[in-house]
Design a protein around this nucleic acid. Sequence first.
DNA 1: CGCTACCTGGGT
DNA 2: ACCCAGGTAGCG
Length: 297
Amino acid sequence: MAEVPEVETLVRDLQQAVVGRRFTGAEVLVPQAVRFPAPREVSERLAGRRVLSARRRAKFMLLSLDDGQVLALHLMLWGNLALRPFSVVKPEATLVVFALEGGEELVFSDTLGYARMALAPAEELARRLKLDELGPEALSDDFAPEVLARQLRRRRGPLKTVLLNQRVFAGLGNRDADESLWSAGLHPRRVAGSLSPPELLRLYEGILEVLDEGVRLRGTQRDLFGVQGGARHHRNVFGRTGEPCPRCGERVRAGKLGGRNTHWCPTCQPEHEATQASTPVATGAPGSLLDEGTSRQ
DNA sequence: CGCTACCTGGGT
DNA sequence: ACCCAGGTAGCG
C-alpha cells in the first residue's frame, strides 16, 4: 500500500518514462474517482497535452502539463499506477486510463476504490486540494530537527497522531510512523509537544532513516513498470505483533491509536511522564491490569 | 482535535 | 457473516 516511499518511487519513474510525452486522451471507468473536473471533461482536457514535470507533495503525485494544468493522483490506501502497452482489456479495479502517445497507457486502479484524481489549472488545483496547507516535507533538503521541533511544539495530541497529520508534517504514513517511532525509541502516545531536544533529534534521524531506506529499496509495492519493490520485509515493528523486537527481543505490541493500527516495543519505547494515559487499546485485554506481556495482534 | 464515511477483497 | 485495511475530507 502507498506511503511516501511508494509514491516517491512512482514519481521518479514518471520523471523517467512519462515526462516529455503527450497524453492522447483518457478513459474514465469509475466517475467517482474524478474529484474534478466533470469526469467526461477529463479526456478532452488532457488530449494533446505534454507532461512537463512530475513531483510529489505529501502523498499526491503531481504532473504539470504544457497548458498550465496539473494532473493530481492520490493512491489513498490501495491504489496503484502502472505504465504498460495499450490494451483493450483493462486490469481489475481500473478507475482511469490515461493514454500516451506512442501506444502506451497509464493505468490508475484501486480495488478499494478510494484513490482519486483531479485536473485543473495549477492555482485552482492547489487551492481545491489545499496543497498550500500541507506541512513541511520530510524528504526535503530543508527538513531539520528544528523544523520538527517547530511543528510539534504546543501540540498536545499523541505524537503518532500528530505525525500522521499531513498538514502538520508531510511524509509519514501509518507504517512509517510506527517504524520511525521505534527507531527513535519514542512511545506513540507521547505528548507531541513534550519531546526534549535529544528526543527530537532521534525522531528526526529515525524518520530520515525509515524514509531513505524505503526510497532506496523502491518501496514495498510494484513500481510504474510492474517491478516489485524491495522494502516489503524491512519492518521492525509494523505488522510484527508478538514477534521479538529486533533490538531487545521483547515481544512487539499492537493496539489502536486514533483508529489506526499501531505497533511498538514496550521496552525500547517506554512510557514516559508525558505519555498520555489512555492506552492504545490493548487488543483483547479489556480493563487490563495485565499490562505485562498481554499484547496480541 | 477526534470521529465517521468512503469502498471492496481477503482474512478470520 | 463479519471485520478489517499502510488515507483523507468533512463534520461536530
